[in-house]
Amino acid sequence: MRGFLDYVAGDSILHRLNPITKIILSLCICIACFASNNLIFLVGIIGIDLVFGAVGHVFDKAVSLLKGLVKISIFLFIIQVLFVHSGTVLVPLPFGLDITLDGVVLAAKVVLKIIGATMPLALLLSVTQMSDLSNALVKKLNVPYQYAFTFTTAIRFIPIFADEMAGIMEAQTSRGVEFDTKNIFKKLGLILPLCVPLLISSVKKINSSAIAAEVRGFHLRNRTSGYKDYPIAGNDTVAIFLSVLLVLFSLYLNTL
């Protein structure tokens, strides 16, 4: 988990694209994923995600991200399969929990959509600096700085919370709480009471970052404060055009 949302410095074509373009690009991939009903197209999108990883020199990260998502997906897949009972029965099970073709196809689609849509968002953060992201949102899209800041801060805090949670679980395991059990349901039951210390440390952290922002003149900041400009270049136009094309293509495939 550690570091999967971190920025990886570099000078690839993806790094050099305008942050806004990158947002549009990843949003379009997400939309295409959720709009599409075509299994092959969805697999293709995941392929495209990996290609982007390679182009942005973060291929290893893309692969480990994919591995992580696949692990989560197996769980989702099984649940999904057990909930759909229409269509040809593939494996008969007791209590009417038959595994059917419809179920498997639907589950595969859901899982592929989730994987295909999550990867570009995570990769976006690997090739874009947070400050560029929020500044471009403020300059180009007229988003009030407070909102852009809230957005990037929320993302920035995810790994911090994950670390904090890991630390709390370590401390509790050392006191004999069975977090090292293999039984995932038992583990979930044990995690719930830990929300208290997590919440308390989070509120403390957020409070101190709010104070730190305030003493550095946060309330004075507006659209004109950033000195960097984010012009839309030729590459950007092409990328946006291709993104829109991708969405249209996914819609077109659905009509076939």
């Binding site: 904090e164 630390g167 709390i168 370590e170 401390a171 509790q172 050392s174 006191r175 009471p193 830990l194 208290v196 210390p197 308390i200 440390s201 403390k204």
Partner: peptide, 13 residues
């Protein structure tokens, strides 16, 4: 083995 971490807030629950 009892392990006391540096940050007590992670332990108190």
């Amino acid at each position: 083995v009892g392990l006391l971490f540096q940050n007590p807030d992670r332990q108190i629950c």
